[in-house]
């Protein structure tokens, strides 16, 4: 940015010089022709002074113009910068205001608190993963890798603890995935990732694996998929029974005698909604169990690579989201 402005200035300045020279040049020419012809009408001091003043004024004018153009150029840069900032703020503003509304409607600012806690968690995770990456690149020993891998696993446990606490406050915020980027939300299942899908991605990244490891990972992928199905079916049955509860009895009638039964219905439905929190907890339990089992099947070095691959995958999803949000729209 810094080197473009002087160049632009020069070109504008050049134009200015030409135009200035147009008027001044005529004067200078007369002066020159006059001075060449010394014998005749000598220019008095007054004229010379005027010419000098003229030249000086022109020089000052050029400098002022140069400064002015420089100023314009700076303003232009600043404006572009501000526009970019505004756009970024708008994107974030939409996100904050929507999650804010949600927090408002579903009790307290638990959602905002969770979002903040989650982004802190992500930052910490980035640090841990960078550490793991450099240890892997430096061919660190298994003992050293193991410590970092255990740290990453403990960090995942921390996430699930945070989520479980937040689910008590605002389970719908967690289920909505509004705390994740849009592309991540595309893959959302019960407030997080599907471990069976992650394992599928990993299969090609962990070569070479022994026969036993291959079987271990395959069967883990299968069992976690079965557990996901069981939870999904549980969610379906929850929705079904919620719908049944709400539509049972006197749908449509509004006589005052039904107030009690209406309230009873609502109380039952509330009880059923309360189970949602359990679903998040169980889904996160499944995620944790799957990661832990994956690490049991793999060697320390493979575990490190697997955790990195998972991390990189999510980083790419987030990067994709940023690109998507910044895409030109028109």
């Amino acid at each position: 940015m810094a080197d473009t402005s002087p160049r632009t200035d020069d070109s504008t300045d050049g134009d200015t010089d030409h135009r200035d020279l147009g008027s001044e040049g005529a004067l200078v020419n007369t002066a020159a022709s006059d001075s060449s012809d010394r014998s005749k009408d000598k220019l008095d001091q007054k004229t010379l002074r005027r010419l000098a003043q003229n030249r000086e004024a022109a020089r000052k004018s050029r400098l002022r113009k140069k400064a002015y153009v420089q100023q314009l150029e700076n303003s232009r840069l600043k404006l572009t910068q501000l526009e970019q900032e505004l756009q970024r703020a708008r994107q974030q503003g939409v996100f904050i205001s929507s999650s804010g509304d949600q927090a408002h409607s579903t009790g307290g600012n638990g959602a905002l608190a969770f979002d903040a806690e989650h982004s802190r968690w992500l930052e910490e995770k980035n640090k841990k993963m960078n550490e793991l990456r450099s240890a892997l690149n430096a061919h660190a020993g298994d003992a050293e890798l193991r410590i970092i891998v255990d740290g990453v696993m403990a960090h995942y446990e921390e996430l699930f603890r945070i989520k479980s606490n937040a689910a008590k406050n605002d389970v719908f915020h967690l289920l909505s995935g509004m705390w994740k980027t849009p592309a991540e939300r595309c893959f959302l299942w019960l407030g997080g990732f599907r471990s069976s899908e992650l394992l599928k991605l990993l299969a090609n990244q962990l070569e070479p694996m022994t026969e036993r490891q291959m079987m271990g990972i395959n069967s883990l992928q299968q069992t976690s998929h079965q557990a996901e199905d069981a939870l999904s079916q549980g969610m379906e049955s929850l929705q079904q029974s919620l719908a049944d509860t709400l539509s049972s009895g006197t749908l449509g009638s509004s006589s005052s005698g039904n107030v009690a039964s209406y309230m009873g219905q609502m109380a039952m439905a509330m009880g059923k909604l309360g189970t949602l929190e359990g679903f998040i907890r169980q889904a996160d339990n499944l995620r944790l169990q799957t990661l832990q089992q994956m690490i049991r099947v793999l060697t320390t070095r493979q575990s490190a690579r697997a955790l990195l691959a998972i991390h990189d995958y999510f980083s790419r999803l987030r990067a994709l989201s940023s690109l998507w949000l910044a895409r030109p729209r028109e």
């Binding site: 939870l231 549980g234 359990g278 169980q282």
Partner: peptide, 15 residues
């Protein structure tokens, strides 16, 4: 009665 978590447990055992 009617708890969906019980349903989940049953489905998991059924697999």
């Amino acid at each position: 009665r009617g708890c969906c978590m019980g349903h989940v447990a049953k489905r998991l055992l059924l697999t």
